[in-house]
Simulated scan of single mutants.
Amino acid sequence: MKEVLYSTITGFLVGLLFAKLKLPVPAPPTLAGVMGVVGLFLGYVLAVRLGWMR
């Protein structure tokens, strides 16, 4: 659980840095885009657990 918390905090801080430097965010800027990334991750996890990835 620490990894999730640290990743969230790190992502938040990097997001602040990108905003400060006026750089585009290297992630989908909409909820639909973010959920697409989440779906991709969950699909990968499922494939690994089903043994499709060796």
Score class of each variant (00 low, 15 high):
L46F: 13
V25N: 10
V38E: 04
Y6S: 05
T8Q: 06
V34S: 07
T30M: 01
G43F: 00
P29A: 14
L17V: 03
Y44A: 09
G39R: 13
V14Q: 10
L42R: 13
L13T: 10
R49M: 13
M53P: 00
F18Y: 14
T8K: 00
G51S: 03
T10M: 08
E3H: 09
L40N: 00
V34M: 02
A32Y: 06
G51H: 00
T30D: 07
F41N: 06
L31T: 07
T30Q: 02
Y6M: 08
V37R: 02
L50P: 07
T10N: 05
K2S: 12
G43M: 09
G36D: 13
W52Q: 01
T10F: 11
Y6W: 05
P29W: 10
L46A: 10
V25L: 09
M53W: 13
G51Y: 04
V38I: 15
A47V: 11
K22C: 02
P28C: 06
M1I: 10
T8L: 14
V48R: 04
K22E: 12
L13N: 09
G33A: 08
V4M: 11
G36I: 05
T8W: 06
V48Y: 01
L42I: 15
V25G: 02
L31N: 05
V48A: 09
V34Y: 06
L21N: 01
L50Y: 05
A27M: 12
R54Y: 05
V37T: 06
L16C: 15
R49G: 00
L13G: 08
K20I: 15
L13R: 05
T10G: 07
I9H: 04
P29I: 14
E3L: 06
L16K: 09
Y44E: 03
Y44G: 05
P24D: 11
G11I: 08
P26M: 13
A47G: 11
A47Y: 01
V37P: 05
L16Q: 09
A47E: 08
G11Q: 01
A32W: 07
A19P: 02
L50K: 04
K20L: 15
L21F: 08
